[in-house]
């Protein structure tokens, strides 16, 4: 299994990480190497095996519907990259 440079670009965009053009080939090789490792799973037939999402055989615990959180805006925004009037700022979003 190998990943092409075009696929690397596509994946990188899905993951929102820019990649320098010089590095694309290296990523393609690295990722292909990992997929070769992963391909060992194909040695066995796992048809009918129940997928295991979690090691714990437990069910979700429910929380009582109570407001427990005070306003902590000042603390939580203290180290934010860009804030104005209590809002986090990002470059203009066009809908």
């Amino acid at each position: 299994m190998s990943i092409t440079p075009t696929e690397v670009m596509k994946i990188a965009h899905l993951a929102r990480m820019s990649i320098h053009p010089d590095d694309v080939e290296r990523y393609a090789q690295d990722l292909s190497g990992i997929l070769d490792l992963v391909a060992h799973m194909n040695q066995i037939d796992v048809q009918g095996v129940e997928p295991m999402a979690h090691p714990l055989d437990m069910s979700q615990r429910l929380r009582a519907d109570l407001v427990t959180e005070p306003n902590q805006r000042e603390l939580l925004q203290r180290h934010a990259p860009a804030v104005e009037n209590g809002l986090f700022l990002v470059p203009k979003v066009i809908e």
């Binding site: 696929e7 994946i11 993951a15 929102r16 990480m17 820019s18 990649i19 990523y27 990722l31 990992i34």
Partner: peptide, 18 residues
């Protein structure tokens, strides 16, 4: 994200995304 993450983290994010 490209500046904030190092190579190994990027590799794993990409393989996981894939």
């Amino acid at each position: 994200r490209a500046e904030g993450f190092g190579d190994e983290v990027k590799r794993r994010i990409m393989i996981g995304t894939y």
